[in-house]
Nucleic acid binder design. Structure first.
Lengths: 253, 253
DNA sequence: ACCGCCCGTTGCATCATACGCAACGGGTTG
DNA sequence: CAACCCGTTGCGTATGATGCAACGGGCGGT
């Protein structure tokens, strides 16, 4: 493991959170200012951070460009973009797309509802979701081959975030059976008490579930029942996206 | 300057472009495989790269998350998102938002036209634009205070990309006078012969032009004259966004 | 089935780089 | 005007980054 690289990563993260002075950078790393300065100078020349007029460091456009390069090359995200925007427009709810990526399930797109301007959802593109305490996580888990599901869950330390969390393997397994039976999943405040969500599976050309689409509401805006009223649209959207990926949707669900 | 950090940056960039094996990583850096491995292991633990099942390294979701954090905290981009989507829907053209950031003008949002699925535009969020050979670049330059414009242009080596490029300071200055007179700018294939663009200035609460919005077409889809037919909508959108930023739009243009 | 080759990986000794220190100039505040 | 703090740079040194050798595993050819 490289200590210098870890320090650089730490500074990039902090510069993304809020503007960072040299003195602060040295303090948080626990190194001399000259050491922090050289790391920042290297990151600045790479456009991973930018020096502001006030002398502080913020995230640079080089990171944004790399991110857009990666997101732009994701076929799933490209195919899903228009159907998800349509779903958001028709239902009024915030819409997410999450994908299994290695050992994590990551949000790769999000179409915000204007109704949420005042209350920000915690979800963010690039961020991993809880695989057992989110609708998209449970959806993808439900359809994974048993060995792969076991492997993902072997790293998990179950935590009861709220009273409705499936906080052990048995209750989660029962929930996954339900999800497979009905073809969709619900998050009834399992990670955050005020956030409700429904999700539907997205399949690739071989029929494997590799992603999920979801609609999210918070309790002051819409109840779970109101969210479920739009479930048929969500399911149609997920099937449409699956079709774009080459899944033969005539086989039935 | 930190050599290890520069190597890490290089690997992150390459992993974003295409999957990278350890052997390739060592070769492109000119170091031993054990050295490259340790850098990659550090980046992987930070989620800046991800190891695929095939053993290659690709860009990690940690970078995507940082990028979204930065983009999500840009007020201009938040205020502009809905008006730009409306503009794209009404006109059918691809729409961009570019902002002066330090010494560069960077695309910070882009709403694609479905018509472009087959032909990809070179523009990308996070990427710097040519400040003298793009409509958004010329728009922002036109309204900068002279000292700041001179400072930005002092770093520029003019290059004639196409027959229509303003490839020297005199012809650029004349063009900037025209832009200030008419209140908008045109790119008639100045950077890429097949790309046309019109742009309008966006002002902050103090009336300074800090960004520009644009509509883009390529010659097989729409001519520059067809693009100009939507100019009133573009100007209205730019004024609307300026208003959201606190600019008093009743002062006249 | 076996062998050779290449890949990724790790422990360890070595050396080159990252590090901290001292000194500096500049800006801000009292 | 003085004191303080910031950012910065040159340089000697200590340490962390480095390469090497050895290893196990997978793959392809015979």
């Amino acid at each position: 493991m490289s200590q210098s690289v870890r320090r650089a990563v730490d500074l990039i993260r902090r510069a993304a959170e809020h503007p960072l002075s040299l003195t602060e950078a040295a303090e948080v790393l626990g190194v001399h200012k000259s050491t922090a300065l050289r790391i920042l100078q290297t990151l600045e020349s790479a456009r991973f951070v930018r020096r502001t007029g006030a002398g502080t460091y913020v995230l640079g456009s080089g990171i944004i460009e790399l991110s857009e390069l990666a997101l732009g090359s994701m076929d799933l995200r490209q195919f899903a973009a228009a159907p998800l925007r349509t779903l958001q427009r028709k239902t009024g709810h915030t819409v997410h797309l999450a994908q299994l990526t290695g050992d994590e399930i990551i949000y790769i797109d999000k179409v915000d509802s204007p109704a949420f301007d005042a209350v920000k959802l915690p979800s963010r593109i690039g961020r991993a979701v809880s695989i057992y305490a989110s609708a998209v996580g449970k959806t993808i888990l439900a359809y994974l081959p048993t060995a792969e599901r076991d492997r993902l869950l072997s790293h998990v330390v179950f935590e009861r975030f709220t009273p409705t969390t499936c906080a052990d393997r048995e209750s989660l397994d029962a929930e996954l059976v339900r999800i497979r039976e009905q073809g969709w999943a619900v998050d009834n405040g399992e990670h955050d008490t005020y956030v409700m969500c429904v999700a539907a599976p997205i399949r690739d050309s071989r029929g494997r579930v590799i992603a999920a689409a979801s609609m999210t509401a918070i309790e002051v805006i819409a109840s779970l029942d109101q969210l479920k009223e739009s479930l048929p649209l969500l399911l149609d959207t997920a099937i449409q996206i699956s079709g774009e990926l080459g899944y033969d949707t005539s086989e039935g669900d």
